[in-house]
Design a protein around this nucleic acid. Structure first.
Lengths: 231, 231
DNA sequence: GGCAAATATTGATCTGGATCATGTTATTAA
DNA sequence: TTAATAACATGATCCAGATCAATATTTGCC
């Protein structure tokens, strides 16, 4: 069996959400009349696991994490940047509560879209539904990659993954302001804060990255990718 | 923060697929004219990660595993029992290859539905599309549970999960014929074969299960659930 | 029916990363 | 301005589960 398939283990979806362009004028108006726009500060819970799912969330501005909390601790399923739909799982019939929480990493703005309205439009507009199917599949693929990363890679590989993901997908630059604390990085890469610190130090010593305060600079992304890819 | 949420970590979807009941006569005929039914023997690859995704798979009979293989080994994303759609991710626009492989655990029969036909119907029939959205969301929820299980639980908890899942969701009995080898159980619960054997022995010694040849009997499902739930 | 190849089992050893302890430096709030 | 709190850092120890090694047992198949 060949085991050389490249698996994308990045944490965020890439594509901008385009589904709303497929609505009729009437449907656009219906949505607009059935949503509220709300701001959340850094650290605030946008939706809480276990509460009634009365709306779908569209992130207008900011960066959020989607996480499940259980008896054995917390798992970050994904992080979502702006211009993305967030809580589509809420659409599932017969499951009227959020299966996860959504928390703001930075100050964020969301549109809360009434779920009944959203469902109504899906059932009326097949093109819109098709685009939602596309979004769901894209999310799934994303999650599978992260799933693989967290279960099959070693700690160095997981951390390299997260750093590359932040650089390439979120901030889209080699040099960026790290918004996340070591603790948050640890949660994201599925290890302890202490180990994130130790490993970042190692990365610095080996000339893979440079850090000054909150500024992070990718020095050797090729080798970083190798580490991500080996484990 | 409360951390007492019950998370379903079972590996398979529950609901029977009902989407085809929503088709018009014409659409049903269109599907029927664009599918082939194929049998696969135990162990055979039904679709291979990285090959062109030309069809959606509907499992008529049998039991299959969906898995991703990469440089760091293999990950079983889920197992799927009969009467379920399997490779819906293939629908994703711009992603024309299967992101995972599907392999038969036992002799199985599948319907391979032409993907263009499937997409055409989604774009024409909003109710059908809505049902597909429902299925996708159900799958997602399922995967999240397994994701949580594999990343946050200890080995005993993971094994207990798999045994309960097999008993309750797949075979729907307290006593069942274990179709899977120790090695397959190990893959499924994310540990080594040796440890599966040791832990099964421990479960037997502690009176949680009874085993005779391939027959497995759940003796104390309450305690087994506790182990699954603690870790 | 026999033999090669999986599969199952058990014990000994090793190790990646968690946990614990302790201290230092930034923020935040009062 | 300072007290409190959270973030950052580093070293010492520990442990769940992997890896390795060495049979036993089953299964498929010519």
């Amino acid at each position: 069996m060949t085991r050389d398939q490249k698996i994308n283990s990045c944490t965020v979806g890439l594509e901008k959400c385009t589904c709303f362009e497929l609505l009729t004028e009437e449907q656009t108006e219906l949505i607009d009349n059935n949503l509220v726009e709300v701001g959340f500060s850094k650290g605030e819970t946008i939706c809480k696991q276990g509460t009634f799912a009365t709306h779908v969330i569209y992130l207008t501005k900011g960066l959020v994490k989607v996480h499940m909390d259980g008896t054995q601790g917390s798992l970050i399923l994904k992080i979502v940047p702006e211009n993305h739909l967030v809580a589509l799982t809420a659409l599932l019939e017969g499951n009227n509560v959020f299966p996860y929480s959504v928390t703001a990493y930075v100050d964020s703005v969301v549109k809360l879209i009434n779920i009944a309205t959203f469902k109504k439009i899906i059932n009326e507009n097949a093109k819109f539904a098709a685009e939602i199917i596309n979004t769901l599949n894209s999310n799934t693929l994303q999650t599978f990659g992260r799933f693989y990363c967290l279960t099959n890679k070693q700690a160095y590989g997981r951390l390299a993954d997260i750093i590359l993901c932040l650089s390439e997908k979120i901030f889209k630059q080699k040099v960026f302001e790290l918004l996340l604390t070591r603790k948050e990085l640890a949660e994201l890469s599925g290890m302890t804060t202490e180990n994130v610190i130790r490993m970042l130090k190692k990365f610095r010593e080996d000339g893979l990255i440079e850090m000054e305060g909150k500024k992070v600079k990718i020095k050797n992304s090729k080798l970083l990718k190798k580490i991500s890819n080996y484990g």
